[in-house]
Every structure is written in C-alpha cells, then in structure tokens.
C-alpha cells in the first residue's frame, strides 16, 4: 500500500524561522502591511516580532491607535483602491479630504472583514506575537508603557531589538 499524500505541517519553529518587522509609519495604509504580514507569519508557526518606532508608535499608542489616517497629500501616485484614476494630491489638502479618504479606506478594509487596528493588535497578541516599543520614540513622545497597548511587552532600545531578533528575517515598513 502506498503512503497517503499528507500535507507537511512541519513546525516552522522547529526549522528556526523567525520574522522581525519594524513598523515606522503611522498612516492607516502603512500600518496594515506590517500587521497583515505578522498575522500571516504567526499563522504559519513563525516566531514573529514587531518593533514600533517613530510614527509607527501611533499604531500602539492607546491615544492614536484607533484613529490612524489615510491621506492623498504628498503622494502623487495616490488613488483609492479599485480606481485607476489618480486624484491630484493637492486636492487632498482641501478641508475634509483626509477625513473622507480615511472613512472610505476604513470601510473598504471592514468590508473585507479585516479588523481595525486595536482589534488587529488583539488578534496578533492572541496568536503569540511579540511586540516591542522603541525607547527613543517613547522618550521623544514622553510616553511610558502605561500609554501603550497592553500587548506590548516592553520599551526597549534599538540594540535590545537587534539582540532579540538574532537570526530573524527582517522587514522595514
């Protein structure tokens, strides 16, 4: 009798694969790539670390995490997803344009059943994600661990992060 065809679910942890993502941007559309990739990696059994730095701090700052924005301003390549025609980026500077674009983007994300940022962080925590906050960004923003999303393990220095992610594949977003 031949061996049945069985998917190989070899544990990625066993193979030592590790992923580190540096989240450095606080725009709504720049927050999601890191969160989605982290979620995908965790679902594949990969040990995953997120390091939030500079404007990426807004993703884990309790005061801002639910209110990230999407804007046309300053990006000449910008258009709404699903629309090929660009909008002149200067129009994005008109009052209300950023709020409108943000609302539209949030609706598109919700329609795909992808959670908002705070709920997404909860999902990652439940999946075993390691989250770290940048020491320099915390100092610049005068924030402490109490101001940050509870799933953040600690505020650490850049060298701590380099040490923790020894051997990891690294993404900078």
């Amino acid at each position: 009798m031949s061996t049945p065809i069985v998917p190989s679910f070899d544990d990625a942890a066993g193979s030592g694969r590790k992923l580190a993502i540096i989240c450095s941007k606080g725009n709504l559309d720049m927050a999601y790539p890191g969160l989605i990739l982290a979620n995908a990696a965790l679902g594949e059994g990969v040990e995953t670390h997120l390091f939030f730095t500079f404007w990426g701090f807004d993703i884990i700052n309790k005061a801002t995490m639910g209110d990230l924005k999407f804007t046309f301003v300053g990006n000449t390549a910008m258009h709404m997803p699903g629309h090929n025609s660009g909008i002149h980026h200067m129009l994005g500077a008109l009052p209300g344009a950023t709020a409108g674009a943000t609302a539209m983007m949030k609706k598109m994300i919700a329609d795909l059943d992808v959670p908002e940022v705070p709920e997404f962080l909860e999902l990652l925590t439940a999946s075993g994600c390691h989250m770290w906050a940048c020491r320099m960004s915390a100092d610049m923003n005068k924030l402490t661990e109490d101001d940050l999303y509870d799933g953040v393990e600690a505020i650490i220095s850049a060298s701590d992060f380099i040490e923790i992610t020894d051997g990891a594949q690294l993404l900078f977003i």
Binding site: F9, E44, G45
Partner: peptide, 16 residues
C-alpha cells in the same frame, strides 16, 4: 478564541 485554536492545532491552526 484564536488563542484556543493555536493551542488545539499548534503551529498552523488554519491549515491544520
């Protein structure tokens, strides 16, 4: 809960 799914089907819960 997601945490429970990871405990029941370790590593790759969705695929398993």
């Amino acid at each position: 809960p997601v945490k429970e799914l990871f405990a029941l089907f370790p590593g790759k819960p969705a695929k398993k």
